[in-house]
Simulated scan of single mutants.
Amino acid sequence: MSIILPVLNEADNLACLGRSPNRNLPGVEWIVVDGGSQDNSVGIAETWADQVVTGFRGRAAQMNAGASSARGRALLFLHADTRLPGNFADFVETLGRESPLWGFFPVELQPGSPMLRVIARMMNWRSRLTSVATGDQTIFIRRDVFQRVDGYPPLPLMEDVAISKQLRKLAKPYIWPSPVVSSSRRWQQAGVIRTMVLMWYLRLLFVLGVSPTTLHKRYYGS
């Protein structure tokens, strides 16, 4: 398996990942793809990652670049502020044995709150119902299937939704029962309710055909 991390100014999170017990699992390759960080992300990644790829900007482009360098039969796309479950070694063994085409994890948001727990349950329920995952849910794809759908579409936002919709045409997603733990920092910084409404609004606009470039500007600012 190749774990691909698209990063931009994630030095602290990369340092934590380098100390993770999952770092040294046999048969697991770690690839960090930097999008032009101004901090020490590249230097820290070079101390522990199996590969560090630079020169790409934009999450979709970074994930595709990592996939093109990967040696694993399965590709797992991990955000730097997301932590894998404690039974990840069991997941790797199961994935090697069953070889599902694609899938994702349920998500837990930390630091948590009653509202964030409700939001996480809603996210997990929605993804199970629709077979559409977000990047926070750590999508994994068999490499030959990733190549069949031509990788992530070159979108500045909603690339995870777009590839999920392609993949669900091929097979139902395999959902590992244990959650990944994703940082709630953006929820807390912008306000939990405001962030939830914004995300649902952007997803609706995407379904209605609004340009991902426009959505990117609304999400991140111009």
Rank of each mutant, 00 (worst) to 15 (best):
T195N: 11
W200K: 07
P212F: 06
V181D: 00
S41F: 06
V33C: 15
S222V: 07
S222G: 04
L84Y: 04
R168K: 15
K217Q: 13
V192F: 04
D150M: 11
Q147A: 13
M196Q: 06
R126I: 01
G36F: 12
L109H: 00
S2Y: 03
I141M: 09
D144I: 05
E93P: 00
S164M: 11
F104R: 02
T54I: 13
V53S: 04
P173N: 03
L78P: 02
P114C: 05
Y152Q: 02
F146N: 09
H216F: 15
N9H: 13
R23C: 05
P111R: 07
C16T: 14
G135P: 05
M196A: 14
K169P: 01
F104Q: 02
G35I: 01
R73Y: 08
P153I: 09
T54K: 14
R186D: 14
P21S: 09
S178C: 03
G103F: 05
Q189V: 12
Q137F: 07
G58T: 09
V181A: 13
S113N: 02
S184H: 08
S69M: 13
V7N: 06
S182W: 02
R186G: 00
L5P: 04
Y220W: 12
V149P: 06
D144E: 15
M63T: 06
V33L: 11
T195D: 07
A61C: 08
L198H: 04
F140V: 10
L75G: 05
V32S: 09
V52W: 03
L215H: 07
I119S: 00
D81C: 02
S178P: 00
T138N: 03
F56V: 15
P212K: 10
D90F: 01
W125R: 12
G96L: 00
R203C: 00
G96D: 10
V118I: 08
M123V: 07
R83T: 14
R97A: 15
S211C: 03
N9W: 11
D136I: 15
L167F: 12
P177D: 05
L109T: 01
A15K: 13
G191M: 09
I163Y: 12
A70Y: 05
A133F: 14
I141R: 07
Y220C: 05
L205H: 12
R83P: 00
G96N: 12
L205V: 04
R126Q: 11
S69R: 14
T54S: 09
G72K: 04
N22W: 14
L78H: 02
R168Y: 04
E93C: 06
G58E: 11
D144G: 07
T82P: 00
V7D: 07
G135I: 13
A80F: 06
V149W: 07
F206D: 12
S131I: 01
M63C: 10
L204Y: 13
V52H: 03
D90T: 05
Q137C: 12
S164P: 11
Q110V: 10
V42Q: 03
F206W: 14
D39L: 03
Y219H: 14
L76K: 01
